[in-house]
Each structure stands twice: as structure tokens, then as C-alpha cells.
């Protein structure tokens, strides 16, 4: 964004960003420090020795995939509809969806519990995927709609002139051009799904169905609280999220959008 005209500007920018990033690093350093204190690597070993340890990662992964798939699909379709298509009462519908952003998770459990129970969904991943997606979509929709607003209408015109119906326009224009924002929301949805705690706790029963957020439970009890191992677990839990984030970085590159038009 900024043009680096001289050596000095480069240094200034580098210093600036380093200073700004420092406050963010301090708690992270403390966290890693604590995770290595006491038993050191033994903490990490203890975490991997928790029964069903790998299952937790698998389960969280499955739930996250489900949530991402549903959120991404519904968000892209919805953003396209709200941003570029004709809807009477568009804002009213939009605000109704936004209203879903306001509920704290805990309020969802009491009404959903008997519902899922009756539908036989209790202790299945759907009981987590559905409400988590429902909580993600308003937020991703809000962001993506804004982003799609920024796609020049001329491109849509061009596609229409070329004979594309709304579906092909969606597939060939909207989806590719939205990649930067799509990457952003996929990362954020992944994190929210991966870190989901209360909904899995309430709706998943068997140990084989538990998710990574249950890991700290094994190192805590009424009269004890082992920070060293919990934080070691947190470091391990964070790894997939960081990997996903780094992996999706290439979608943020400028110019990808423009070059993708056929």
C-alpha cells in the first residue's frame, strides 16, 4: 500500500509495525513460558496422553468443516442476493438476520436441547453444526455483503451481456472476486467453530465425540487447576488454526481478483 521510497521509510515502517505488534506478543510469550514451566515438554506429553486426544482434533475438524461449508454457501448466496439482486423489503430481511447476532450462546441451549432431543440429533455433530452456523452466518453475511457491494456493477452487466444468468454470474463473477473476503471469513468461521465450547459441551455426550475445547477439563477440577498443561494444550489446539490462517494468506493477495476475470 505504501510506497517505500527510501531506506529510511522502510526502516520507519518496520520499526512502527514492530512497536505496534509488541503488546500483542507479550501475553503470548507468557503463555508459552508457562506451558513450558514445571514439567517442560512433559506438559505437552501429558496433553497428548489424554484419552481420545486425537479424536478431539478429528471431531473439531469435522464440525469446523461442516460449519464452514454451510456458512460459506449460505453467506455467498445471501450476500449476492442482498447486494446485487432485487428484493422487496431487502433491508427488513437483512436486519432480521442481523438480529440473530445478538443472542449469547447460553440462551440457545435451553430451547434447543429438547428440540434436538426429540429430533434424535442429540449427541450428533449436527446438534453443534447447526446452531454454530446459525450464529456465524449473520456476521459473515454482513461482511461479505459489504464486500460484494464493492464489486463494480459493470462486471455484472458484462456478464449479463455475455449471456450469463444469475447463477452463472454468481459462479463466474461473484465467487472469484470475493476470494479475499471469503478467505477472511473462512478463517474466522473456522476459529469460531474450532473454539466452540458451550454448544459442544451441552449437546455432545460420549467421550469419542468430544472436541478440543474439552481438553482443559482434564487438567482442572474442583480443587486443582493445572495451568502448565492447559496452556500446552492451548498451544497444540491453536496450531491448526494458525496453519489454516497462513495457508489462506495467498487469497489475500492484491490483483488476484482482477486477474481472475475471464
Amino acid at each position: 500500500m505504501f510506497e517505500i521510497r527510501s531506506r529510511i521509510s522502510r526502516v520507519i515502517l518496520q520499526v512502527m509495525i514492530t512497536v505496534l505488534v509488541l503488546p500483542f506478543v507479550v501475553p503470548l510469550v507468557v503463555m508459552v513460558q508457562v506451558s513450558f514451566s514445571g514439567a517442560g515438554w512433559g506438559n505437552y506429553k501429558a496433553v497428548t496422553e489424554v484419552p481420545f486426544f486425537l479424536y478431539f482434533f478429528r471431531n473439531s475438524g469435522l464440525i469446523a468443516l461442516g460449519v464452514i461449508a454451510i456458512s460459506y454457501a449460505l453467506t455467498m448466496m445471501g450476500a449476492y442476493g442482498f447486494s446485487k439482486l432485487r428484493i422487496r423489503g431487502r433491508e427488513f430481511f437483512f436486519w432480521m438476520i442481523m438480529g440473530a447476532l445478538t443472542l449469547p450462546e447460553v440462551v440457545l441451549i435451553a430451547p434447543l436441547f429438547p428440540t434436538f432431543s426429540k429430533l434424535g440429533l442429540y449427541d450428533t455433530f449436527w446438534a453443534v453444526i447447526i446452531p454454530v452456523s446459525a450464529l456465524q452466518v449473520p456476521f459473515t453475511l454482513l461482511l461479505t455483503r459489504t464486500f460484494v457491494d464493492g464489486i463494480p456493477n459493470d462486471l455484472l452487466e458484462a456478464a449479463r451481456i455475455d449471456g450469463c444468468g444469475s447463477i452463472r454470474t454468481f459462479w463466474n463473477v461473484i465467487i472469484p472476486l470475493s476470494r479475499p473476503m471469503a478467505a477472511a471469513i473462512i478463517v474466522l468461521v473456522f476459529i469460531n467453530a474450532w473454539n466452540a465450547y458451550l454448544l459442544p459441551l451441552a449437546f455432545l455426550q460420549n467421550a469419542e465425540h468430544e472436541v478440543v475445547t474439552q481438553l482443559p477439563q482434564y487438567f482442572r477440577s474442583q480443587y486443582s487447576d493445572d495451568q502448565t498443561k492447559q496452556l500446552a494444550g492451548a498451544v497444540l489446539t491453536a496450531l491448526p488454526e494458525v496453519i489454516a490462517y497462513i495457508g489462506l494468506q495467498k487469497f489475500f493477495e492484491r490483483g488476484m481478483a482482477a486477474g481472475a476475470i475471464k
Partner: peptide, 26 residues
């Protein structure tokens, strides 16, 4: 990219459903 996304979601749903069916002892 879109195709792999679609495949991934179908896979996820299938596995998820499968995983639930087998483990859930109710």
C-alpha cells in the same frame, strides 16, 4: 477451487453423519 470446496463439504457431511451414527449410543 469451487469444486474442491464442494467436494470437501460433501465429504464432511458424509463423514460427520457417519461418525455420529456409529458413536452415538444414546
Amino acid at each position: 477451487v469451487s469444486r474442491s470446496l464442494a467436494l470437501a463439504s460433501v465429504f464432511a457431511l458424509a463423514v460427520g453423519l457417519g461418525a455420529c451414527g456409529s458413536g452415538s449410543s444414546d
